[in-house]
Amino acid sequence: MKPYLYMIKIKLLLALSYRYEVFITFITQIILLFVSSFFWKAAYKGIDSVAMVNERQMLIYSVISIILGNIFSISVEDSIRQKVRKGNVAVDFLKPVNIFYMYFSEDIGNVVTSVVQQIIPILIVSSLFIVVPAPASAVHFILFLVSVCCSYLIMWLISAIFGLFYFWVIDIGPLGEIKNYMILILSGSFVPVWLFPPIIQKTLVFLPFVYIYQFPISVFIGKTSPMPALTGIAVQAVWILGFGLLFGKIKRHVEKNIMVQGG
């Protein structure tokens, strides 16, 4: 456990030393926060609720979405890409620790950092100027926390699987971008999927995307009540299992190849 904890600490130290980045990232988040709040206020002007969601809930939705965006900024894909490019990824595989635990610790370190540097300030600014992002109830909040952890795992596994692709093709170029756009739009990170035409909504239920952003947030604002929330968490667990197995399979394949070709 020790090396992984140390990794988290290193990440924290690194993040603290980049003071411009901290500030600039925060400014970006605040811009995003205000722009989406104005956007929804304009959309709701004179309208009580759409799809049983009122203006206040929608504002909370966008605040929480921005916060989740911070938590989900996962670096495993990028770490692998850079290492494959420099050709020193084989060295990592030879270290006496599991490198994916190492990458995971790094990312957890990032989450801890962003809670301190971004999320708490965002919550304060949002409460003061836009809306107090209060959960629908304590039960909803607990279910939200559980489902966010699941979302995180889904996101992380998707990133890690994409990272593993770099072993085959040194540069998958814009493919990673395409994946990111898909996730952003299909997960309801900005516009909830419940506003989409019914046929698309029905299709998206069978894909993992909505379980990353929309599902936990709708639990938070109370659009999803506790019982369906539990079902949703079960579905998330199934996705985690699926992606976990896929990841394990690809990883074993890659490791075998590295042993044969020597990186």
């Binding site: 956007f39 959309a43 998958i172 170029g173 814009p174 493919l175 971008e177 395409i178 756009y181 952003l184 739009i185 900005f190 516009v191 506003l195 989409f196």
Partner: peptide, 20 residues
Amino acid sequence: GWLISNPLQFIFGLITIKVV
């Protein structure tokens, strides 16, 4: 890759506007 990914981004932008 860019020929696919860049237009995709704008199509998604358009969908957002349409839906809202």
